[in-house]
Amino acid sequence: DGVAVLPAPQNLSVHSTNMKHILTWSPVVVPGQTIYYSVQYQGEYESLYLSHMWIPSHWDSPIAKPECDVTDDITATVWYNFRVSATLGSQTSAWSILEHPFNRNSTVLTPPKTEVTKDGSHMVIELEDLGPHLEFNVVYWRSEPDAEERSKLIKNGGISVHLQTMEPGAKYCAKAQTLVKAIERRSAFSRVECVEVEGEALPL
């Protein structure tokens, strides 16, 4: 069994944006050598009922970079602990544990990138694809005094969605926000985007 002579990785932290969670740490440096890392995790269940048990991350093949995408390990809105060890040949470091457990409800939610276009007289929006966890609330209206806002829930990004049919000579606007049901949170709205249909406004 390798003797723990390698220093344990330090400064573990989780960076989470739009439900994508990346565990990072400070690299262990041995000049001229490649260091490999192993990542394991423990959900709140394990820490309550099976505190000795640590589970190999999905990304469980030895990792050469000082980071690991742990998104697929975090499947519930509970606290998760992570630990990392370094390996060089037969030498293995001690485990280093994340200082503060991570809960996905703290993920940073950013407004989606949007593109509002017109297809003939149709108002169309395309939203950035941000992965399976995220849905979008799109609010759209005709740009006029006392305009009535309407909203539409869009389940996935990366596709064009028809919002409404537009009348000539009128301007129509839309904005969008990211929704995550699993953690019951939403992002700020994106900036407003408008399109206009040329031609004479129809007589009232």
């Binding site: 269940y45 394990e46 589970i55 190999p56 519930a76």
Partner: peptide, 15 residues
Amino acid sequence: PHTLRKISSLANSFL
């Protein structure tokens, strides 16, 4: 490991 991860996912969801 795969089964272990699925059991963990189920257990933490039940929690």
